[in-house]
Simulated scan of single mutants.
Amino acid sequence: MGSKNKLKRFKENEGFKNVIQPKREEVINGFALKGKWHGHFGNDKPIVLELGCGKGEYTLGLAKQDTAKNYIGIDIKGARLWRGAKTALKEKLDNVAFLRTQIELIDSVFGENEIDEIWITFPDPQLKYKRTKHRMTNESFLQKYQKILKPGGLVHLKTDSEFMHGYTLGLLHGLNIEIVYANHDVYKNEGSPSAVLEIQTFYEKQYLEKGKPITYIQFRMH
């Protein structure tokens, strides 16, 4: 994407009512919406996050499937968020918002027990050992998720990476976290939720065309 297109999208994001772009200092020093996200949506519906949402394909798909919940897609790449935000506005999806921030700051932008569910879709598996701290299901991130989730809140991990799937299962077992459901090939085995089977991102379709299995884990944070 050219720099002119990026600048144009950044500018449009500033005018989108469904895009929130706090500065890092604002987040660290006291974010105004922390603990008050229901006020942003104007209702008390459950709040669901998609972390590393990219263009927001999964956020939008979930929001269309279940209008009884509010959905927030989170990513640091503003030019990607633009696509999802623009589509949500065009289709008048009032239960969708996008937050531009770093995932490691998640417990600074949401209050304790404020979130009902978290989706992590096709994250970078960070294969190198020195990149372990950046894996979105490492112990540090799990602690952050537990802090913002309501007791018993669900986390969903959908990925094409067998490594990420196995790594996460091993960690969950080691930490005695309840695994509700796990499947190493959701399109060949029965029992996966409709949200896993019926929503496919652009890259997921490419993975499937190459014959790569798509894995899924659902676990509960107590």
Rank of each mutant, 00 (worst) to 15 (best):
H184G: 00
K212V: 15
K17V: 13
N176L: 09
K128Q: 14
Y167T: 02
K147H: 09
L33Y: 13
K11V: 02
C53A: 06
F141C: 01
N95H: 11
Y71Q: 08
G211E: 03
G174L: 12
K130R: 14
H173C: 11
Y207N: 03
P125F: 06
S3R: 15
S108L: 12
N113T: 06
G30Q: 12
L172S: 01
E204H: 07
E91H: 13
K64G: 14
K92W: 05
L33W: 11
V109E: 08
W119C: 07
S161R: 00
L7T: 13
R83W: 05
K92P: 08
N43C: 10
G170T: 04
N13W: 00
I47E: 01
A68G: 12
G191R: 05
H165T: 00
K6S: 08
T137F: 01
L154I: 11
N29I: 06
G56N: 06
L93Q: 07
I179Q: 00
E190F: 00
R24H: 11
K158F: 11
T137L: 04
L49C: 12
T121F: 01
Y181V: 04
L49Q: 13
L93C: 07
H173A: 12
L197V: 08
D107A: 15
I199K: 11
V155N: 00
K17P: 01
H222G: 10
G111T: 15
K210P: 00
V186Q: 01
L33E: 13
H38R: 12
P151T: 06
K150E: 05
Y203K: 02
Y167P: 00
K158V: 03
K23W: 14
A88E: 07
Y58S: 08
L208I: 15
N138K: 11
Y145D: 08
H40D: 05
L51D: 08
Y71V: 09
F219L: 04
G2K: 11
A63P: 07
S194D: 14
G61Y: 03
I72Q: 00
F31K: 02
E198M: 14
N70G: 10
R83I: 12
T67M: 14
K6Q: 10
K158N: 12
M164G: 01
T159I: 01
E91S: 14
I214A: 01
Y216G: 01
K55A: 14
H40Q: 12
Y216H: 08
R83L: 13
V27G: 03
F122Q: 04
L171C: 06
N70R: 07
